[in-house]
Design a protein around this nucleic acid. Structure first.
Lengths: 229, 229
DNA sequence: TTCGCCATAATTGTTAACAATTTGGAGCCT
DNA sequence: AGGCTCCAAATTGTTAACAATTATGGCGAA
């Protein structure tokens, strides 16, 4: 159950937007759920105006799909659409890595090293691995997006596509051994960035995401009756 | 001056959205223009509700920037932001071309050939070249996006980024000789797609957009005092 | 039973009024 | 003159009522 909004300061529209996005991404509102304006307005303690505003903003992030005169629903990505998302990420994050190799500060690179060291320990200890490996993975990609010094790329990835990825992160948990493989891939990407080798960083990042996609596609073959349309 | 909306059928919000987008992209409302809700509502013959709705949708396409409690303005891209846009296009359209080589139908490829033949004639006759070469260029890229059979890519490019490109297409008209060069690049990309050589198609498309970006960047160096921030 | 139709309820779309915030400028002081 | 404060006007944010559209459910006929 979603609770009312406590933080003041911002306008209602923005607060409802964040609360709704959180409810969707955490799975509190499951994919496909009908989003009725009067009900949600009551739940968030506001009127329908700001709520509609929030729905439009969520629609632009593809977390909500709206059909005119019929209402809004939480997005339910098909397997095909998830594959499409991987392909877009492959393209965008390849470019991101290339730019990050040129533009990331030495400090940021050192912080990335620390992050990966922590991931290594997490995986060895296997504590909280199920949860952490996904959020940690996104954190790695997130920092590279920031390091690209390209705001358009950063917003596309961090504020749009990653939210969608988070929404589906629990659906297809990576297979046994994949976290360690992913970490090794992250290490290689970081090495390339440290060497300021943009071309290699791009190639490695694309291969990394391509591997994740193929892992997912294999998962589809193994379990033909998924929960997605 | 923007006129009132005649087409019925759709809801007001959608009609205002399209009319406003058109006014922005055609330059009727210049970059940086303050968008006052009461004024626009009068102009489009509606109330502020649907108008705010339209503004939010334009915001999601980056054609409008909204600062809370201070109102909305037509976007005014800086030179740096335009460079960023080229880089994003390079990444996305590279992937688009790769996928189009695999997924475009033979009919679509033939239609692309017809399109390029027409461009060739247009350039030789030099009639309407100034206008056509830009819209025609976008048409070429548009069809490849469709041919990728990736809806996420198609929407990102055709409905988001291309509108921004159109908004700035008149600002930096390609230099002498560039249209012919661009056409030759288009030809090579089409050849690769016809050969179903996705890898080559991607390389060529990226080089094509990279060339356009460098052409633009050179333009920046030559004319340091641009109209953009 | 099952299909289609109609009335009713629920939901979305739109409007206008009210509240809160920001902007612009007059007037005053230094 | 220059800059500050404060008031007024304009603009954005929010709400609730009304209109239009869509979903629902019962009824009757084949």
């Amino acid at each position: 159950m979603v609770q009312a909004l406590q933080p003041a300061h911002e306008n209602l529209s923005a607060r409802v937007f964040e609360a709704l996005q959180d409810a969707i991404v955490t799975g509190d509102l499951e994919p496909g759920t009908k989003l009725r304006e009067p009900e949600l307005a009551r739940r968030f303690g506001t009127s329908r105006g700001p709520l509609r505003d929030a729905l439009r903003r969520l629609e632009s992030r593809r977390l909500v799909i709206n059909t005119p005169n019929a209402g809004a629903r939480v997005v339910a990505l098909s397997r095909q659409q998830l594959v499409e998302l991987y392909l877009v990420r492959e393209a965008l994050e390849g470019m991101t890595s290339r730019l990050a190799a040129a533009n990331m500060s030495d400090t940021e690179i050192q912080e990335l090293e620390v992050l990966l060291k922590r991931h290594e320990q997490e995986i060895q200890r296997k504590d909280g691995a199920e949860y952490f490996k996904q959020e940690g993975d996104l954190d790695f990609h997130f920092r590279i997006a920031v390091g690209s010094r390209n705001e358009l790329l950063r917003i596309s990835l961090c504020e749009d596509h990653y939210q969608l990825m988070r929404l589906y992160r629990y659906k297809f948990s990576n297979r046994i051994g994949r976290p360690a493989i992913a970490l090794a891939e992250h290490q290689m990407i970081l090495d390339a960035i440290r060497d300021r080798d943009g071309e290699l960083a791009e190639i490695l990042m694309r291969r990394h995401i391509r591997n994740a996609r193929r892992n997912f596609e294999q998962h589809l073959i193994d379990t033909p009756n998924g929960e997605n349309t």
